[in-house]
């Protein structure tokens, strides 16, 4: 059985086309809603936070605001995790919080029509389908559409203090 967020499908249908920022993690292409993106930075000067999960690289100074940096490559168990000139941080704004996510590179901005967005299949262990809003199909490319809000506020990411913790 396929699971997908009906809300997102609905939103896409109502608002016609949706714009996504496409980024790469290893060989795969992912995309997030462009409206969540605040800016894109190079990866530098991250201060480690002790006793945090290893995919939380630490915090950085974004013009006076302390912003946590999450490496999605580590989170998604990619084999190759390197920090070089290509490594970028996408600063996203979710649930009134500012979080930086480290990815291998940002390729482009895509506009998807509602019929280009297919429901996401149940995936393996890497990423629970809860955090996907669908798959975008474009000629010969396939984009994994990530629900960045849900992903970053999830308990798994340990970014937000959960009630009762």
């Amino acid at each position: 059985m396929n699971r997908y967020s009906t809300e997102d499908i609905q939103a896409a249908a109502d608002g016609d086309n949706q714009q996504f920022l496409v980024f790469s993690l290893g060989e795969e292409e992912y995309a997030i809603d462009i409206l969540k993106v605040q800016e894109i930075l190079g990866y530098e000067n991250v201060t480690r936070i002790a006793n945090a999960p290893d995919f939380i690289k630490g915090v950085t100074n974004l013009r006076g605001i302390i912003v946590p940096i999450v490496d999605l490559r580590i989170k998604f168990n990619l084999d190759k995790v390197e920090y070089d000139g290509q490594t970028v941080v996408i600063v996203v704004n979710v649930s009134d919080r500012i979080v930086g996510i480290v990815v291998d590179g940002v390729s482009d901005v895509m506009t998807l029509t509602p019929d280009q967005i297919k429901p996401a299949p149940e995936l393996g262990v890497t990423m629970s389908a809860d955090f996907l809003s669908g798959l975008g199909s474009l000629e010969n490319r396939m984009l994994v559409l990530v629900d960045i809000d849900k992903l970053l506020t999830s308990k798994e990411m340990a970014l937000v203090e959960q009630v009762g913790e």
Binding site: N45, I49, N51, V59, N61, I66
Partner: peptide, 27 residues
């Protein structure tokens, strides 16, 4: 003094963060 909890969460052993002269963050 900069709050860590604004965008992150409480970190054990750390009360807040600050920004040093070189722009990096220190806890």
């Amino acid at each position: 003094v900069k709050n860590l909890e604004t965008n992150y969460r409480k970190v054990p052993g750390v009360s807040a963060a600050t920004i040093l002269g070189d722009g990096s963050v220190a806890l």
